[in-house]
């Protein structure tokens, strides 16, 4: 079973903190960090790469944003089964409703409080990587 987590995050600090949070909670999964939507699409549509178990997708990114990536993935028969958790700084209603209507599996607003942030990431990982059973 694939065990890759794809983290698409343009902010290096957020990425580092997220990775640290995973590490602190002993997630042994391979975390692939990409810095924008275009990179993510390139990665996902490169047949060399194993399809990730979970995609953590930031909404606001240069070049191709998270919403765009989400739209592409969820309209792709092969890719739409991959759980996508939108990670964002904003509580913007429009972003939230857009995400869900496009088929995002969860929407998480990154807390400023690092403890809460760690908790959120941990719970995310726990749920999607351990408890959730994707269709084979």
């Amino acid at each position: 079973m694939n065990s890759t987590i794809l983290l698409v995050e343009d902010n290096p600090a957020d990425a580092e903190l997220a990775i640290r949070a995973f590490q602190k909670n002993n997630f042994t999964h391979h975390i692939v960090h990409l810095e924008d939507g275009q990179e993510a699409l390139n990665y996902l549509y490169d047949s060399i790469n194993e399809m990730p178990r979970l995609i953590l997708l930031d909404v606001k990114m240069p070049r191709v944003d998270g919403i765009e990536v989400l739209r592409k993935l969820k309209s792709d028969e092969n890719k739409k089964v991959i759980p996508v958790v939108m990670l964002t700084s904003s509580k913007e209603e429009r972003d939230i409703s857009d995400s869900y209507s496009l088929g995002a599996n969860a929407y998480i607003v990154k807390p400023v409080n690092f403890t809460q942030f760690t908790d959120a990431v941990t719970q995310l990982g726990l749920f999607w990587m351990v408890l959730n059973h994707p269709p084979k």
Partner: peptide, 21 residues
């Protein structure tokens, strides 16, 4: 406001996160 909510919170997260570290 979008940018505030997104862009201002990110550095704050970083500050609080790194202070934690």
């Amino acid at each position: 406001t979008y940018s505030v909510s997104h862009d201002l919170r990110a550095p704050l997260r970083a500050i609080s996160g790194y202070a934690h570290i």
